[in-house]
Simulated assay, not measured.
Amino acid sequence: MVITENTFDIVSETERLVIRPLKKSDYKDWLTEFENRAPSQHRHDKGKMDMSQCTQVWFNNLIDKHQDLAITDIAHMFAVFRKEDGVHLGMVDFSTLSRGDFQWGRIGYSIHNQYWRKGYAKEAVKEAINIAFNNLKFHRIEAHINLDNTASFNLAKGVGMEYECTRKGFIFEFGEWTDNLVYFKNSFE
């Protein structure tokens, strides 16, 4: 599958949000919101992070890496900004699992914890799925979610994704092979 639209030209807006790839000029806003994170709320929330290595040069290299991943259709990264003031709220990303006869991708999402419980994640993920189908030309999107990540599987259900199965020993994290819930949405639904 060849994506005819350059991922870095994609900009999508909702009532309250702008969803687009990061630009090198976003550095200060991006860094500020990471530095303003609250302490971790649970094991799936990184909370405050050491951002000392995240210089402008480091960030520029990150943007270049995002572009390379998009050009090769390995992954497509989108930042979520609040429309009214441009605050960086978080990220939504897509990894290509298979093209060809499948057109299959995985979605990941993260909203800075200081902006939780305001509906931003649901609004962002719902619009990002539209980007996945309309711009990135995926047919199927999956979310792979830890069994105890209630907020994440509630979000997946809230944007119209359906539970499909539990994959046993699916991903190595937290020092062990963990099970994941699989939620999906197909483009014709």
Rank of each mutant, 00 (worst) to 15 (best):
M1K: 09
I3W: 13
T4H: 11
E5C: 13
E5M: 01
T7D: 09
F8Q: 05
D9M: 07
D9S: 15
S12E: 08
S12W: 15
V18W: 10
I19C: 05
R20H: 13
L22I: 13
L22A: 14
S25K: 11
Y27M: 13
K28A: 15
T32Y: 10
E33L: 07
E33A: 02
E33C: 09
A38W: 06
P39I: 03
S40E: 10
S40F: 02
Q41G: 10
D45F: 01
K46T: 03
D50C: 09
M51C: 15
M51L: 14
S52M: 01
T55H: 06
Q56D: 11
F59V: 02
L62H: 12
I63P: 12
D64E: 13
H66Y: 14
D68P: 03
D68V: 04
L69N: 13
T72I: 03
F78R: 07
V80K: 06
F81W: 02
R82H: 13
R82C: 14
K83S: 11
G86E: 11
S95Y: 06
R106L: 06
I107E: 01
G108V: 01
Y109K: 07
Y109V: 04
H112A: 14
H112D: 11
Q114V: 03
W116Y: 15
W116T: 05
W116I: 03
K118T: 03
E123S: 00
K126R: 13
K126F: 08
A128S: 15
I131F: 06
I131V: 11
F133P: 05
F133W: 04
H139T: 02
R140L: 09
R140C: 10
E142M: 02
E142G: 02
A143L: 01
A143V: 04
H144W: 04
N146G: 12
L147Q: 04
D148Y: 01
N149F: 03
N154D: 11
N154Y: 10
N154F: 05
K157T: 12
G160Q: 07
E162L: 07
E162C: 09
Y163C: 04
E164W: 01
E164Q: 01
K168Q: 12
K168E: 06
F174E: 09
G175W: 00
E176L: 07
L181G: 01
F184W: 10
F184C: 14
N186G: 10
N186A: 09
F188I: 04
E189V: 06
